[in-house]
Amino acid sequence: MGCYLSTNSKKVRKTQGYEEPTVLASETPFTVSEVEALYELYMKLSNSIIEDGLIHKEEFQLALFRNENEKNLFADRIFDLFDVKRNGVIEFGEFVRSLGVFHPNAPLEDKIAFAFRLYDLRQTGYIEREELKEMVLALLHESDLVLSDDMIESIVDKTFKDADTKDDGRIDQDEWKAFVSQHPSLIKNMTLPYLKDITLVFPSFIARTEVEDSE
């Protein structure tokens, strides 16, 4: 099926960062046709504001929030982790490889590690108390929830007490793994059921190409 992409390549403007679906399928939980379906999604997202076939942060925000100007700490972190080359855009290969972690069949340890990197805001290799508090405050702000400072401190303290078993004021990767194994719901958002049905959601890559050919 992947042959369609290369044999019909006259129909596909290959953008910067484009990688062959067969290569991406071999390195991720996706099949070739699922990668092709993701290309449909990618092209839609990457041309929503700036038509250059690359996902800019505003386009990512627009897709997530229906608002290109909505700032959000967590969306920023996701964007930064997807932007592996750190060039300010998410390229197609980066998009597929990163979304692969969210596939229902991706290894659990990959999901746990990704969530750790997500929450390690300053990339020190640890989740620190200040970072956790910053994330709680961001979530409250985003949700228009108001809690007293004491309440916020209590939530952060309690969580830290439970997760920081070495009691050194920071959560390392081993502590994080142990904490997630006790609270599996923490990484529920690291699985996107949609990805199992991506060819149903975006079924039209091959079909559309053929339709265009016949027009």
Partner: peptide, 26 residues
């Protein structure tokens, strides 16, 4: 839900910014 008993990470994981499902909505 009494907030003090909440797990901070549980709270954070509800962020809309982490809900990538929105990317797939047409």
């Amino acid at each position: 839900v009494a907030p003090v008993t909440m797990n901070a990470f549980e709270l954070i994981s509800k962020s809309r910014g982490l809900n990538l499902g929105s990317l797939f909505e047409k």
